[in-house]
Design a protein around this nucleic acid. Structure first.
Lengths: 140, 140
DNA sequence: CGCTGAAGCGTTACAACATAACATGTCTGT
DNA sequence: ACAGACATGTTATGTTGTAACGCTTCAGCG
């Protein structure tokens, strides 16, 4: 996790962006969780001594983290996870377990989708994919 | 649109489900729109004479329509569209224009994703994909 | 150094989205 | 006609997300 924070710091410097306190704090909370976190979970957990953050504080940090690719929003859960992949693109794909709530990021292959998009005349900027099902542990 | 409503009626009968008034009305509104509709758009437009519906009326109808595959929710827009495809699966894929708000459904090819899921031990029940970009008209 | 403009933050208030819970109605089979 | 299941109406409330404003901080520059 220190490593992940350090890497984020680096990438910010490269991008001429700043990993300010609230941004760093929210990323820290995401990295420290073992599952997707809701915005209001982050708001509640924000203060070191238990005081919650104000919503815009967290939403602004999340917007930044998504923009830089440090976090992803999982639309079908209204929740957020830290990016676990190295690749620097703007696409995200998740396997979501409907039983235990785990969400695992994986490297998608959107070749077929890009072809379909091109055929329809669309230019794609970003793709998100959310597959719902059961993880190995829950399937047993 | 009459045809689509008729087809829905048929498929309900086959599935031993009922296309009741609120369900039919919401489907009608979705079919009559030229773009994704928000839940509260539906609520506002529900009454023939302008009176809005109560939220649960519309949300329950939407839940039914999604369950039968007559409509899809577009997570990244918090909006709903009627299903425009014949296929009867539970997967949905959209090309969403960030400029004009159009959302076009297409037939996805999830072979690669299913392979990735299997590799991770996941059993996939349903997949949704939302590609954001610019449509042909807006790209010009 | 001190100014300036841009980006970021804190705060208040509110808007948008969604559901719980319970009472009432309406179909279906017997 | 009755029971049970499913659907709806209604009230209230919970959850998620943003607008708008003023203040602070930081980097660039004369």
């Amino acid at each position: 996790m220190q490593r992940a924070l350090g890497a984020a710091e680096m990438r910010c410097a490269q991008a001429q962006e700043r990993l300010t306190d609230p941004r760093r704090r929210v990323l820290e909370l995401l990295l420290g969780s073992d599952g997707p976190l809701k915005a209001y979970d982050l708001i509640a957990a924000y203060g070191e001594a238990g005081e919650p953050a104000k919503p815009p504080t967290v939403y602004r940090a999340l917007e930044f983290l998504e923009r830089l690719g440090f976090a992803h929003r999982i639309e079908s859960l209204n929740a957020y996870v830290p990016c676990r992949l190295d690749a620097d693109g703007h696409s995200a794909a998740f396997l979501i377990c409907e039983c235990c709530g785990a969400a695992e990021e994986f490297e998608p292959d959107f070749t077929a989708q890009f072809a379909a998009a091109a055929h329809a005349g669309y230019t794609v900027r970003a793709v998100t994919l959310e597959a719902r099902g059961a993880c190995a542990a829950c399937r047993r």
